[in-house]
Amino acid sequence: MTAPAPIEFSDATVVTVSPRQISTAMGAEQAILQLDSGKYFGLNPVGARVWQLLAQPRTVAEVLATLLAEYEVPAERCRADLLALLHKLHAAGLLVVPPAAAPA
């Protein structure tokens, strides 16, 4: 599998899980298999919650707001951890940025 080109995430970036993976909940954690590389990934409970949120397309700001509402964590640290996770998931071929919706 060719690594996807890196992207810069902004609050407005819409992201969702890639169709080229399968995943399953393992208790509070999440196991994921990337189907092109055959690599297995595990997410801790907070990562699993992010994964659950990204099952449908959402902006980075929406995900961040949900996490801040659910966990007691400083906003800047939450943002930094979320962006680091999104970069890792994207580099592993587990996230996609859907094409922008066509204007009406």
Binding site: M26, Q30, A31, G42, L43
Partner: peptide, 8 residues
């Protein structure tokens, strides 16, 4: 092992 590590 944790469940996810066991699966891995």
């Amino acid at each position: 092992q944790s469940l996810v590590q066991a699966g891995f």
